[in-house]
């Protein structure tokens, strides 16, 4: 499929060029070219199995950890090839953070959850301040400041997910990848996460995969619709939802399949 590469205004933070991901013989992502602007929220939408999570995981090379996964084409971060020979995925993952679908705090104290990333990455500032700053940034500080030494598993699901966001922020990434971050949460916790995403885009580029189209419409400035591994349509969120150019996009957002 020949797709015109839409270039949103502003600096390009992440980019893929003719990117494919193969699991063995199966091509999960097919020749995707997309440009993601700096300090904006971009949503990936599409039915289950459309490759949106796989595409997301290319940006911090988490697909490296899947046995048998292979990447073709190029993925660039600030113009640098993420799959170049001189790129260390460990370095990339500090600069491009990730939040997962199910909250996955370490079974340790709240403090140690946040402090782990800075510690292993040789953080040279005051660790206590970094923990506080990260928790404040994730709008969790007031709820946990008196029990930082308690287990993170004692928190509610929504709090755990904000802890995971705070944990990702503690290593001061430039990009935050979020893989359906609210799909395991109740509506109130979901609302808090969405408000948080709205705050975060002032400092971070956020790429969010979501099943929830209202969520994509609420939080994102740009939306990409993927179907069967292909990027079908990409553009300003408002256009995608009010005036899609592709019939398949329209069918999906109006709920006729997916």
């Amino acid at each position: 499929m020949s797709q015109s590469i839409i270039t949103p205004p502003g600096n390009v933070e992440l980019e893929t060029r003719d990117l494919s991901v193969l699991y063995g013989p199966t091509r999960a992502v097919k020749h995707v070219s997309i440009r993601i602007p700096d300090r904006k929220v971009v949503a990936f939408i599409g039915p289950s199995g459309c490759g949106k999570s796989t595409l997301l995981r290319c940006f911090n090379r988490m697909n490296d950890l899947v046995p048998g996964a292979r990447v073709e084409g190029a993925a660039l971060f600030q113009g640098r090839n993420l799959y170049g020979g001189d790129v260390d995925p460990v370095d990339i993952r500090r600069r491009i953070g990730m939040v997962f679908q199910k909250p996955n705090p370490f079974p340790k104290s709240i403090y140690d959850n946040i402090a782990f990333g800075p510690r292993i990455n040789g953080y040279r500032g005051n660790l206590d301040e970094q923990v506080e700053r990260s928790l404040r940034h994730a709008a969790l500080w007031d709820e946990v400041k008196d029990r930082l030494d308690q287990s993170a598993l004692a928190l509610s699901g929504g709090q755990q997910q904000r802890l995971c966001i705070a944990r990702a922020l503690a290593v001061e990434p430039e990009v935050l990848l979020m893989d359906e971050p609210a799909s395991a949460l109740d509506p109130i916790a979901t609302q808090k996460i969405e408000e948080l995403i709205y705050q975060l885009k002032q400092d971070y580029t956020v790429v969010i995969v979501t099943h929830n189209m209202q969520q994509a419409a609420r939080v994102s400035e740009y939306t990409a619709f993927l179907y069967l591994g292909e990027l079908i349509e990409y553009g300003p969120t408002e256009e995608i939802f009010t005036n899609p150019r592709e019939e398949r996009t329209e069918s999906y957002i109006t709920g006729r399949f997916g």
Binding site: N60, M62, L65, V90, D91, R93, R94, G97, M98, F100, K102, N104, P105, F106, P107, F116, G117, I120, N121, C164, R167, A168, V171
Partner: peptide, 21 residues
């Protein structure tokens, strides 16, 4: 759980650090 390993890797942990911590 595998999610614990992924959480560590996503923060820029090496394999050794994920195992050790």
């Amino acid at each position: 759980p595998g999610s614990i390993r992924l959480a560590a890797y996503a923060l820029g942990a090496t394999r050794w650090e994920a195992v050790r911590h």
